[in-house]
Design a protein around this nucleic acid. Structure first.
Lengths: 343, 343
DNA sequence: ATGAAAGCGCTAACAC
DNA sequence: GTGTTAGCGCTTTCAT
């Protein structure tokens, strides 16, 4: 509404002139140096405050070789021009923001093409940020390894993989897949669909848990029941509709996000099948909507707030020059109506 | 995992030395100056790329007096140490991130105490960001006015108020309140509870719409039906439980967020009342969960993606030195089962 | 207790 | 076409 500041931004010289002292005195005063006479210090402080002067951090950082900015990178599908929409991504970004704020760091939120995760390194190379938190490995474990190999301080939300040079923090995906699938089997499900793109490491680990649970039960995995859909609801719905239409028999669904699970529910209903009576459904993430949905979702809970703290602490550990071991955070199944306990 | 870079960060001098030229040549080459011989330019480019060198933006910005960083400020309740959790805030942050990325700006995500919105101005004063987008006016219209008066480039998501010096972008809250309440009246509701803290301007405007709709219908507003709850589910649930227990008669609820609406639904059910048969409920925001919830929510849709674009464009207008007029974005009621059309 | 001056990494006159 | 040099706004020796 009001038009902008043509008023050149104040700088230390201005304060110095107004206070009738030199810039070094202002600098020292503003930084609380005890070298400066307490009352001049106070006077300069007052003056600066009354003029809303604030030290230029760009210049200060350059001089001090410091920087308190961490980049949080949310990859996106450039082809689909897909926007940040999955609530899980948004809430983990919120959790990281909280953790960084608590520790006095600034957060630069960036989006990069999921096919070029390595391009995030420019944020570090250019000094915009002193470290990177990347949300998800996507399909580029190798690029992340390369970044770590050239000593870019980076922590990744995702699964722990063999031959991993970077620090990852993630939920226990195998355990999540295992618990979800075991629960469905225990309910008596015999043919359980797996919804998620196993080219993503996290999903692949959940898929391992799924297969392991099937193996325990002596059940054969059926490739026709694996739906390699991305974290994107339109595609998920289409794939589920197709599965329903195909005539392939199934009585359970394990979906790799709550949103995917709810799309499955809708597709099933559209096909005239009841949840959980005909088909039980288990989701992943335990976002708030899982509580309110119809039916409330049985889902694998991910500790989002803890995730934010762990990601940040791991990165700060790296920045201190220490090694940061990958962390696998506990997950647990939350029982609700989409797949209740067997009666 | 891997430990950090003790390797001092490369700088232009290093590239210059390795290329056997002066820093100015490197600078020009890297900035694509045609003054430089095409092949030396290419050679230097290759060298820099192969070493992952990237111009130090802190220094560059200092020299060029430029900066492409916009701060997005999410206020929070410091007393409650409440975290970013309302899905609406998170999704508008996502929308702003998309809009800024498209336009080549960096986004600094900051949290400030909702009682000290003016503290966000330091981000500008210190040169961290060239402009501010603040999510919500909260209870400090005056602080925002002060910031605008001293020419801080700021745009606020929120309602348009009288005597407003800053640029706001927001949904049409009066229309939203009007449509929601009219719809409930049209269904035959006679006693409609209003759930939301009218000390917040946006909520107050919705409340105006609510009162206007009641007036149109010749209905008397009853203060006992106004629940001044914050955007926080625990408090909302408690207030709704209390209303149910109080014996105050009501047959409709207009809640100022979808999350509040769903808490109302849960409280009503706990009190043995059906939605929408006994009490119809209308929410606000039209977040994804409104589609999936039980019952799906009739709610006022806010154009989140558009909001991101408008906020960013308004700020860029200010930064260009032009005036940016406040914008009120259209909202519309989405009919679902929590308050279906009258039969 | 305060000031003068050098320099953080970069760019852009101004030389040659 | 390329090098030399003077700052961008700040902190910090080193003087006084």
């Amino acid at each position: 509404m009001t038009s902008p500041s043509e008023a050149k931004r104040l700088q230390m010289t201005d304060i110095a002139r107004l206070a009738g002292v030199s810039v070094s005195t202002v600098s020292r005063a503003l930084n609380g140096s005890t070298l400066i006479n307490a009352e001049t210090r106070e006077r300069i402080g007052q003056l600066a405050r009354s003029l809303n002067y604030s030290i230029n951090l760009g210049a200060q950082n350059l001089r001090l070789q410091k920087n308190q900015t961490i980049a949080v990178v949310v990859p996106y599908d450039a082809q689909a021009r897909q926007h940040i929409s999955d609530p899980f991504f948004l809430s983990i970004v919120g959790a990281i923001a909280d953790a960084l704020t608590d520790r006095g760091y600034d957060m630069l939120l960036s989006r990069v093409d999921a096919e070029r995760l390595d391009s995030a390194a420019t944020l570090y190379d250019s000094g915009k940020a002193i470290g990177l938190i990347i949300i998800g490995q996507w399909r580029h474990h190798d690029q992340l390894n390369d970044m770590a190999a050239r000593k870019v301080p980076v922590v990744v939300w995702g699964g722990q993989l063999p031959q991993q040079l970077y620090c990852s923090v993630g939920g226990d995906n195998v355990a999540g897949g295992l618990q979800a699938t075991r629960h469905l089997l225990q309910r008596g499900c015999r043919r359980i669909a797996f919804v998620g793109d196993a080219r993503l490491p996290e999903v692949d680990l959940r898929h391992q848990g799924y297969r392991q649970a099937l193996a325990e039960a002596g059940s054969q995995p059926d490739p026709a029941l694996v739906l390699p859909v991305p974290f994107e609801i339109i595609a998920a719905r289409a794939a589920m509709d197709q599965l329903c239409a195909s005539g392939t028999a199934f009585d359970g669904v394990f979906a790799c996000s709550d949103l995917l699970a709810l799309q499955a529910v809708q597709a099933l209903r559209a096909a005239g099948r009841q949840v959980p009576a005909d088909v039980a459904v288990v989701g992943y993430d335990d976002m708030p909507l899982a509580t309110y949905s119809d039916p409330p979702l049985t889902t694998v809970h991910q500790p989002v707030a803890l995730a934010g703290v762990e990601l940040v602490d791991a990165l700060l550990t790296l920045l201190r020059g220490e090694r940061a071991a990958p962390r696998v955070l506990p997950v647990h199944l939350v029982l609700r109506d989409s797949a209740p306990l067997p009666v």
